[in-house]
Design a protein around this nucleic acid. Structure first.
Length: 312
DNA sequence: ACAATTTGACCGGT
DNA sequence: ACCGGTCAAATTGT
């Protein structure tokens, strides 16, 4: 949940930062504004993915994705994102208008077009053309049949950083390597929570030779660390039968704890014996408490409140 | 003090 | 022997 909130806050901060530029739009250049908007969109999309994580929407989409093998693997992530956007769009429209099917279809079609437009911008028209024409179905490559998903993302063009774009997860860099034919090194990241959960997710980030403002991000392994959610995702020790059934029907991302190798001694007395995982354990406990008792967050969420609380 | 990054060493596959 | 991925000691950041 913490990461979800920080994503939302980040998105709002970005939006807020944009506010002064609205006064004199003419003086700010088009590209700059575009990349700002892209960044904001990206952050909010990540946030919404987080929020949806405990519903079956992602799994539904994933199945749908698997039934469409003609989609280039490099496009899959964006396919998912735009698909989710469309879904929510049409959901909102349906709620607002009351379900009138014909109208809704038109809206959905519009959404699709917008989605692919965004896509084209991010990927560069060359790639889109190439991918559209080549229906090559190489879902998986590389040996051992391990899954590699590669996408491209625009780097923040603003004066600052060459840091990889935000994708909603927290990564820890563990290596960097010069790659043979490339001008820029490749960076290796793994999920920050590798220690606590057995989260095997990794990613590689590399700038393109020709377009340094574009990153190529390759994801490998799935996150097992969706610990930020409301009640149902963290089952209590005693499991009722309905829960078991629903879990069997659709297994949620599992959490695995392996604290302390041998399980030696009682940890009740705050003994220094278990040093292995430092502070992260505390965060975990805090998060679990947050989940179980839903403590902390205030119920009043007006934009003003949040915005003003963000000012430093 | 602890957490994250940097960077050369190491290692497995080809 | 080389290349790309990972480890881990040293360094830097909070």
């Amino acid at each position: 949940m913490n990461e979800f909130i920080s994503l939302i806050l980040k998105g709002m901060k970005l939006a807020k930062d944009l506010e002064p530029t609205l006064q004199n739009l003419a003086t700010h250049n088009y590209q700059h504004m575009l990349s700002n908007l892209d960044e904001i969109i990206r952050v909010f999309i990540s946030a919404r993915e987080r929020l949806n994580a405990h519903q079956d929407l992602p799994q539904m989409l994933f199945r749908e994705l698997q039934q469409q093998p003609q989609i280039d693997p490099r496009l899959q992530e964006y396919w998912l994102r735009t698909k989710m956007m469309e879904l929510q769009h049409s959901q909102l429209e349906a709620e607002r208008i009351g379900i009138s099917s014909g109208m809704e279809n038109k809206q959905a079609a519009g959404g699709t077009q917008m989605g692919s437009a965004n896509l084209a911008m991010e990927l560069g028209s060359r790639d889109v053309q190439a991918m559209a024409s080549s229906s090559t179905q190489r879902q998986r490559r590389r040996k051992d049949d391990e899954e590699y998903r590669t996408i491209r993302a625009a780097a923040p063009r603003m004066g600052n950083t060459e840091i990889p774009p935000e994708d909603g997860y927290t990564w820890r860099k563990y290596g960097q390597k010069e790659i043979l034919g490339s001008r820029f090194p490749r960076s290796y990241y793994r999920c920050t929570h590798l220690k606590l959960y057995q989260c095997p997710a990794k990613k590689q980030v590399q700038r393109l030779d020709d377009d340094p403002y574009t990153f190529e991000v390759t994801y490998r392994g799935d996150h097992t660390c969706h610990m930020s959610d409301t009640a149902p995702s963290v089952p209590p020790p005693v499991i009722t039968q309905e829960v078991t059934q629903s879990m069997a029907a659709q297994p949620p991302p599992r959490l695995q704890f392996r604290l302390g190798g041998g399980g030696s001694g009682g940890s009740s007395g705050s003994g220094p014996s278990t040093v292995r995982y430092g502070k992260e354990v505390e965060y975990l406990v805090a998060d679990m408490a947050d989940v179980m008792f839903n403590s902390g967050s205030s119920s009043s969420n007006s934009m003003e409140l949040i915005f003003t609380s963000m000012e430093k």
